[in-house]
């Protein structure tokens, strides 16, 4: 039960578990943002849940194509803001009228007026922190180890290549069928990535043993 909960929470952060054969998932390369978006839409429509896209730049409309709901960071941010507001109100009251009451030109020890700037600043500060931390948490970051790094080709995700990744942990995942679907969607290159987290791979980068090339289409120059 707890294990399942943890697994789905991690899947929400795009951290997937590999199957018994240590297979992490299929990495399919696409030639441009449009085909990637189309592929993501088709993958979502086919009922896949554990999949992700990787591109060198944000693609407008991709979250919609992937069927992602609106980000929940806002709620974390709101919680941070409320905490900041409460903390600042307490700070102003406790320091001003309990811990060290000082008479400053006859002003009350605690009043809302001079406290508002502090309340405002702490609200903003903590909601900003909450937003950044919440964003990182929902994205599963920082993530120094990701099996996808084994693929030499995957480095191009920050340069000129567009990837769709389908995890083996997805209920719908079937090696043959998923491969066939990626092929049909126009993937240029499909790799099976193996999770060798237990194997020492030196600097943690490319490891050809972990990558099994399934399909490659010769691109016309």
């Amino acid at each position: 039960m707890l294990k399942n909960l943890l697994r789905s929470a991690k899947a929400n952060m795009s951290i997937y578990e590999s199957n018994d054969d240590d297979e992490y998932g299929l990495l399919a390369e696409f030639s441009n943002p449009a085909t990637l978006m189309h592929a993501a839409e088709a993958t979502h429509k086919a009922g896949y849940k554990h999949f992700d896209t990787h591109s060198p730049f944000p693609i407008h409309g991709m979250d919609k194509a992937m069927g992602l709901s609106n980000s929940r960071v806002g709620y974390i941010c709101l919680l941070g803001g409320i905490t900041g507001l409460a903390l600042a109100t307490w700070l102003q009251w406790w320091t001003g009228s309990i811990d060290y009451p000082l008479n400053i030109s006859g002003k009350p020890f605690f009043a809302i007026e001079p406290s508002v700037p502090v309340m405002f600043e702490l609200t903003v500060l903590l909601s900003a922190y909450a937003a950044v931390i919440g964003m990182l948490a929902f994205n599963g970051l920082p993530r120094p180890y990701n099996p996808l790094f084994y693929s030499k080709n995957f480095a191009r995700a920050s340069d000129d290549a567009f990837f769709l990744f389908v995890a083996t942990s997805d209920e719908k995942f079937d090696k043959e069928k998923t491969t066939a679907m990626m092929k049909e969607l126009g993937s240029l290159r499909i790799e099976m990535i193996k999770d060798q987290g237990s194997v020492n791979v030196g600097n943690g980068h490319h490891d050809d043993d972990a990558v099994q090339l399934i399909e490659e289409i010769e691109t016309v120059a």
């Binding site: 030109s105 002003k107 007026e113 001079p114 508002v116 700037p117």
Partner: peptide, 12 residues
């Protein structure tokens, strides 16, 4: 509005 109010409140 608050900036105007607070400064006047503080100045008294």
């Amino acid at each position: 509005a608050f900036s105007q109010y607070m400064l006047i409140w503080y100045g008294g």
